[in-house]
């Protein structure tokens, strides 16, 4: 695929600035790996009295935009104090390059992370983003933690899983963490951008009383109704179906039948059922497939 790179990005990957090791460096930040497809090693020479970045260089393994982002980063932070440099966001980096393709935003995030790692090393702290304090790994393919995802969502005002993949690579390989990413986005957005948080869809059959506590009997009636109208027709298209086995508090037990029984995609199917019911019922529920 040919990327639309700005002239400035092109200029920086064709003529990268400040390349190589810096012998006088007293701070080094290293992020990424060859396995992941990109890596950046940032060298800083910091004046111990003023904490000013007197000299800076980089080494990058990666695509054109990774090289350009690294080169741009060194140009931006030269002469800044560490404090000032830490305020440079991945967006500043992308803006400096007249923008990066959405799918390449993770290159600017890598620049920002290398800078944080270098500053941490200068201050004698260890920079490991899979440390307990730094959150837990969500994407195991690229080693991305929930904290990193939260951070890019807040700093860049992201609201889709695709954007998070573009900015961090999380979810870009096997895709098994996509659902977790979505949950993080929802929870971060409801905290930080409450005015844009998605409202629960209360279409059709939701009666006002549903929003209050309903009896178990009524709840089962409603669930059966949703299954009949929304779920069974959809499963039927793939020659499948389901039985409602039991309802217990907020957990709904179903049994997939027909083609859905034992289908490799049953997890997706269960997730679909959960979404359908949650949407109309207006409350959080679990759906369990009893084989």
């Amino acid at each position: 695929m040919a990327w639309k790179y700005s002239d400035k990005v092109k200029d920086h990957y064709l003529h990268p600035r400040n390349v190589g090791e810096l012998n006088s460096a007293n701070a080094v930040g290293e992020v990424g790996s060859m396995v992941c497809g990109d890596a950046l090693k940032l060298f800083l020479k910091v004046d111990p009295d003023t904490e000013k970045i007197e000299d800076v260089s980089f080494q990058t393994y990666g695509c054109g935009s990774a090289i350009a982002s690294s080169s741009a980063l060194t140009e931006i932070i030269r002469g800044m104090t560490l404090e000032q440099a830490l305020h440079v966001s991945n967006k500043d980096l992308a803006d400096y390059l007249d923008g990066l393709p959405e799918e390449k935003m993770h290159c600017s995030v890598m620049g920002k992370e290398a800078l944080e790692a270098a500053v941490a090393s200068y201050r004698g702290e260890e920079y490991v983003h899979d440390d307990e304090d730094e959150g837990k790994i969500i994407c195991h393919c690229f080693g991305v933690t929930d904290k990193q995802i939260e951070k890019v969502v807040i700093e860049n005002n992201l609201d889709t899983v695709e954007q998070v993949t573009n900015y961090t690579k999380a979810g870009g390989a096997c895709g098994s963490c996509l659902h977790q990413i979505e949950e993080i986005i929802t929870s971060v957005r409801s905290k930080h951008f409450p005015e844009t948080a998605p409202q629960l869809d209360t279409r059709g059959s939701t009666s006002p009383e549903l929003k209050k506590k309903v009896s178990l009997y009524k709840k089962i009636k409603i669930i059966e109704d949703i299954l009949d109208k929304e779920v069974r027709p959809a499963l039927g298209m793939d020659s499948g179906g389901l039985d409602l086995v039991d309802v217990e508090d907020d957990t709904i037990y179903v049994r997939l039948i027909g083609k859905c029984h034992g289908c490799v995609n049953s997890e997706v199917t269960v997730e679909f059922i959960r979404e359908q019911i949650e949407q109309i019922l207006g409350e959080k529920i679990n759906v369990v497939n009893v084989e």
Partner: peptide
Amino acid sequence: AILLLLSENNIAASSGSACSSGSL
């Protein structure tokens, strides 16, 4: 990165790298 620099020299080739595939 190799493809981009080749392309600057008007050479067209392709790569199995993740970055050039559109997926990761």
